[in-house]
Write a protein that binds this DNA or RNA. Structure first.
Lengths: 191, 191
DNA sequence: TAAAACGGAATGAACGTTCATTCTTGTATA
DNA sequence: TATACAAGAATGAACGTTCATTCCGTTTTA
């Protein structure tokens, strides 16, 4: 039968449970039940829980990356490109709350730190759109003269905070507020 | 012997283990060993692990609050007050990495969400220095006309991101960089 | 010496993982 | 076309481990 179908069910169940109840609150048995699958079946697709979680992360990263790169044009000026990327990320986060909650948990866990370290010191990949953008911004003197890592922090720190508040129901972001958020991030970044 | 001394050892051990290895990686037996105490003894001071963790959180919150309020003067203009608070928080975070790591984990867990909800809808407390500051800023038209929650996000999102990067060793924050970070936050906030 | 504090082995629940068995699907045979 | 069989996929009860919590004998305190 369709093999990847079952794999996807497992991943989806894991996403939902972990996003909602944390790594603690998502035992393999529960994931299996939610996926409509036997407990042992999971191990036909994933070596163990860690592998499952890491593959789930990769899946999400890929999806996010695809969404963000849609309609992204290197032709535009720095500011417009930044606004495009920021808006895309924020929109993705608030319209995919499960994905967002999972990613947050992942980043704030041993998994995430290891992953981050690998990324910074390892091979380059997709996320370098940002690095590229910031480096160009530095060269053109349109953003503050700060280490790239800090530009990242200034740009995405607020986005993530705002997305969390939206998802937890502390604000309701409409299109206008989203625009103002990104604009405010740019104000923090620009020279 | 000194009763509170033992309590503090337990709390300190819990802080270190959780900060370093997460909630998973801090079993009660290990906390007890690190505190130089029998496993059962912990239960003379804390009803259970959840209570221990929540009290640890309260302790940290209190400490942070005290540090931040030191030399805080309501006489000064909004911008100066913001810079004072931001600098104090950032300095505290980077010179108490264990505290910071614990707080991050706490906030990104069921504990944290519950706590946050209680706080927003519950009784007012210390943290209202910020609310007060932002409200005054809104009234005087010196900060952007946005919901208070979003002002929070714009102000503290970057601080937390920067602190994390420093602690993980991705940047080294000196006094100058700290100043520039806070200034950038203010740029994002101000009208 | 009575009472309180303490330590750490014992307990039982929960979890990740395994494996003997069952089910499904595709192929060969007559 | 009907039947037998093989091979892989799926299952879930069972296992071993880990952990929070309890219990009780020992030590300290007043």
């Amino acid at each position: 039968m369709a093999k990847p179908e079952k794999r996807d069910e497992i991943v989806r169940a894991a996403l939902e449970l972990i996003a909602e109840h944390g790594f603690h609150g998502a035992p393999m048995a529960m994931i299996a039940a939610k996926a409509g699958v036997g407990a042992g079946t999971i191990y036909r697709y994933f070596e163990n829980k860690d592998v499952l979680i890491n593959e789930l992360y990769s899946d999400l990263e890929e999806r996010l990356c695809a969404v963000v790169m849609e309609d992204y044009s290197l032709e535009q000026p720095i500011r417009e490109r930044f606004i495009h990327l920021g808006t895309a990320i924020l929109c993705y986060c608030i319209s995919n709350p499960l994905d967002f909650r999972f990613l947050e948990q992942f980043h704030n866990s041993p998994y995430g730190v290891v992953h981050r370290r690998d990324k910074l010191f390892g091979k380059t990949d997709q996320k370098d759109v940002y690095r590229e953008l910031f480096e160009e911004g530095l060269a053109q003197h349109v953003v503050k003269q700060l280490p790239i890592v800090m530009l990242f922090a200034l740009a995405f720190g607020p986005l993530i905070a705002v997305a969390r508040d939206h998802i937890l129901g502390f604000v309701i972001l409409d299109e206008a507020l989203i625009g103002e958020t990104i604009a405010a991030c740019w104000d923090g970044l620009r020279r």
